Simulated assay, not measured.
Amino acid sequence: MTNPLFYAKILLFGEYGIIEDSQGLTLPYSFYKGTLKFSDLKSDFDKESNDSLLKYSDYLKDLELPEVFQLNISKFKKDIKKGLFFDSNIPQGYGVGSSGALVAAIFEKYSIKSYQPEQVSKDQLMNLRTIFGQMESYFHGKSSGIDPLICYMNLPILIESKESVDKVAIPASHEGKGAIFLIDSGMTGETGPMVQIFFEKMKTEGFRKTMKEEFIRYNNACIDAFLKKEMTPLFRNLKSLSVWAYEHFKPMIPESIYNAWKKGLDTNAYYLKLCGSGGGGYILGFTKDYKKAEKMLEGFHKEVIYRF
């Protein structure tokens, strides 16, 4: 496999919840992708990427990984000297897995043992997730390892709990009136500070209670309904999830999106939710009538990712 492409990912459900053991559902998004390449480093982009890889290689050198997941760091460092860089159009700070794709690409190229994603067992998936979490922590302070796992496997993954992940088949996308879409908030978000806000909120008993009793219930019900293609319970729980986020995740909702978020709830024309940690980047939208939602969200850049 020469220069394999690693796609972005979209966490449809489970943002913040997976930290607290809710379910999550995440899928590859091939509109954005990245691959490791060599260059003469004459462009600023290539040079910056090469410099970042050098710093990252020092971090990886000090990681104590189990023998079966060892990386060939000396080869990685030699390639960096030869002009290795990560050629990617995945926007950073948009919640679509820019660092996840990089981690997956490095693991694929430099892992001493090679794996065939389609043959990876459920146990191996969990082990890979742990390794990827350690590798990606360099970028976010703490990583669940899910983003690089999706990028590496290039398959939809159901996060069943902290201890269990599995490959999953999602209903095929087909041309209907309904859609799941991305809205560009027009600003980037940083994962670290947003996660910090979440942990601060978790210190209060009231927030912990509503997170467990409401957010996780709505979130898991959305995943169940989506996988079963049951649109009525999906949209009922989506509305509850969107209302909950509007009340409890205010700091994570980009200001440019506040009014549009509320308008969706007031009209029931569409519902919005965070895509990743929030603070900027993309927001996810769900609607039964995309034409209507599109008109109401005029002025925002939108991308449809799934039709039904």
Rank of each mutant, 00 (worst) to 15 (best):
T2H: 11
P4C: 04
Y7N: 15
L11S: 02
L12G: 10
E20A: 12
D21R: 01
S30F: 02
K33W: 04
K37Q: 12
F38M: 13
S43E: 14
K55Y: 15
K55M: 13
K55R: 15
L63C: 15
F69L: 08
K75Y: 06
F76T: 01
K78E: 14
G83F: 05
G83R: 11
I90N: 07
G97A: 11
S98W: 07
G100I: 13
A101I: 01
K109C: 04
Y110W: 13
S121A: 06
M126C: 07
I131C: 08
F132P: 08
F132R: 07
K142T: 12
P148V: 02
I157S: 03
I159D: 10
S161I: 06
K162N: 14
V168G: 08
E175M: 07
G176L: 12
G178L: 06
G178H: 04
I183M: 15
E190G: 01
G192H: 13
F198W: 09
F199G: 02
K201G: 05
M202S: 00
K203Q: 14
N219K: 00
A225K: 11
M231R: 05
N237M: 02
F249E: 01
F249H: 06
E255R: 02
D266H: 09
D266E: 15
Y270N: 07
T287H: 04
K292R: 14
G299K: 14
H301K: 15
Y306E: 07
R307E: 07
